[in-house]
Simulated assay, not measured.
Amino acid sequence: MTTAREIMTGGAECVRDYESVLVAAEKMAAHDVGALPICGRDDRLKGMLTDRDIVVKVLGAGHDPAATKAGDLAQGEAVTIGADDDAREILRTMTDHKVRRLPVIDGHTLVGIVAQADVARALPDPQVGELLQAVSTD
C-alpha cells in the first residue's frame, strides 16, 4: 500500500508560532499554498494555519494581521499522520477529523504535507468519493 511519505509534498515550510499572521500570508503567497504548519522554536508542530483562518479569525474579526501571532491561532493538538502510515490510514484520519490537509511527521519532525488531492490520486475511485463526501460535509 502507498504510504504518506510516497504521496506527500515534502519540504513543508513552517510559520513560526511567534511570527505574525502577515508573515504567514506572505509565505502562503510565495509558495502558492492555502495552509501552513505552525511550528515552535523547538521545531515541533503546534497546529495548522489556513488562509480561511486568516480571513475569518483575523481580518473578519477586525484584528491586525501584523500584530497577531500565528501561534495565537493554533488550536489544541495538531492532527497529523506518520510518514509510514498507509493511504487508508490517511483516509481514516482525514475523514474522522474532517480535514483536507495533514502534516506528515517522522518522529517529531515535520517532513511534508499530504493533501486531499494526494490521497485521491493514491486510492481507488470509491474510496475517493467517500473522502470527498466526509470532509466536505458540515
Rank of each mutant, 00 (worst) to 15 (best):
G112N: 02
T95E: 13
G112C: 07
G129R: 04
K27M: 12
Q116E: 14
A25F: 01
D85T: 01
A78W: 10
D51A: 09
T50D: 10
A117S: 15
V58C: 05
G112I: 00
R41W: 07
I38E: 00
C14A: 13
L91R: 06
D85K: 05
V99Y: 05
P124D: 13
T80N: 07
P65L: 04
V104N: 10
V58F: 02
K69Y: 01
G82S: 13
R44N: 07
Q75Y: 03
A30Y: 10
D32A: 15
D138G: 11
H97Y: 14
R88F: 15
Q133D: 12
I90G: 05
R41P: 13
M1D: 09
I113C: 07
G40Q: 11
K69M: 11
M8C: 09
G47F: 01
A120M: 14
A87W: 06
R101C: 03
L22P: 00
A61M: 11
R52T: 06
C14T: 07
G71Q: 04
A12Q: 09
G60V: 11
E13R: 13
L131Y: 02
G82K: 07
D42Q: 11
L49F: 03
G60R: 07
D96S: 12
D86E: 09
D96C: 00
E26V: 13
D85W: 01
D138T: 14
T2R: 14
M94S: 00
L22K: 10
G71F: 08
T50K: 05
G60K: 09
R44W: 04
A12N: 04
A83Y: 04
D43W: 04
